[in-house]
Design a protein around this nucleic acid. Structure first.
Lengths: 220, 220
DNA sequence: TAGATTGTTAATCGATTAACAATC
DNA sequence: TAGATTGTTAATCGATTAACAATC
């Protein structure tokens, strides 16, 4: 039961959660490692190893109960709690995150946005207040946020990281294209969009090369 | 020289590129695996193995030439070419990507956006045309796009993937929270934002548990 | 030449896959 | 009971780290 969950498994946890939700929505109440593997493009063996490292929820001869397993993973990921978010940077990306209603619905409401630019501050509304960044330290305590979303330019990111840490924020979702330095008791999750695009670009190239190679084989 | 590049290395390629660009901007022309490792939080050994799998650019006793190495990685990732993008879905996320000028500057210009909602279509401008999704098949040929950005709701994503593939699009940058099915000669890169947030959530939990454990040890 | 640092081979570690006994 | 499918151990594979000879 529930021992150490390896990092490789942790990174797959959200995918398990997503697929189990889909299965539940389809009215499927129970699934084998075989079938789940096909859906998730993983081997049945890996599915069983993974689930065993945190669950022990399977039943021999039957498979896994969809709802129980989903709820279990949900709890493991801490999605049964509320995580109030502040967003730093009211650019397009920051505001897109702030207004993405499903985060809020799933327990990650945005409680405030901060920006340097006062014209952004003027767009402030009741539901989504935008404050000047100078007020960060003054306002954070009453906001009771546990997560900060960093959506500022690369140059400003490290300084903001430091200010957030100094105010007790220990979880940062970083959209700035830099690798941040931070103390060991903080957690940072990077969303490096341009990195992701560059990997896509690399794979496009590889695919083209492979196709060219294959054509050459056919011709010769 | 330049043999097979493992997937683990490919995923690090953009980080190498980013750090080398930073070094170049700082005026550093040459760096050892030791120093680069410190910056990137990798072991010098890994740096040497990685770079050796694609480069062979090092010089014993000196280290690696920053500019050459950066340009080499840039070429490997295909960033010396132009990749015209179409965006499917003119929601906040789709438009944030479309207007993110650095993608355009780095060789990934958005040439058009498609949406189901005609009120979105009315926001069309000269620089960023927004077309009704019905016109996708008719307009794609003249747009000469090689990459499609999927920024539609989960339910619509698979159908759009199929339509894009049918029109010859072979590279998809997927922001919809689903795992898509597609033929082997297509490449799909997922940006599952909620997955990313859920991993952050998991790690926050773990961190709290660890701190509690540490405090208990101190008390006992 | 001496010193530094790479390139590369070998050792280790961790993750995935295979196999099969346990059990529902 | 027979059949199905998990839990778990063992085998394999791949990635990371260590070590050191090659060489700038």
């Amino acid at each position: 039961m529930s021992g150490f969950i390896s990092d490789a498994v942790v990174r797959r946890l959200p995918a398990y959660y997503r697929h189990l939700r889909e299965l539940e929505a389809e009215g499927i109440t129970q699934i084998s490692s075989q079938d789940l593997g096909e859906r998730m493009q993983l081997t049945p063996s890996q599915i069983r190893q993974d689930i065993n490292s945190f669950g022990g929820l399977g039943r021999q001869g039957f498979g896994y109960p969809v709802k129980e397993l989903k709820d279990h993973i949900r709890r493991i990921m801490g999605l049964d709690r509320l995580h109030r978010m502040v967003i730093i940077g009211a650019g397009r990306m920051g505001l897109a995150i702030a207004n993405y209603s499903s985060f809020s619905r799933e327990g990650f409401p945005t409680v405030a946005v901060f920006d340097e630019d006062l014209s952004k501050v003027l767009q402030s509304t009741e539901e989504l207040p935008i404050y000047p960044i100078e007020e960060l330290e003054a306002r954070l305590p009453e906001l009771e946020a546990t997560v900060a979303v960093l959506a500022v330019p690369a140059e400003a990111a490290q300084k903001m990281m430091d200010r957030l840490y100094a105010q007790g924020i220990r979880a940062v979702w970083n959209f700035a294209p830099v690798d941040l330095n931070y103390p060991r008791d903080a957690v940072v999750m990077n969303v490096h969009l341009s990195d992701s695009l560059h990997i896509l670009s690399y794979r496009m190239n590889q695919m083209e090369d492979e196709i060219l190679r294959a054509e050459r084989v056919v011709l010769s």
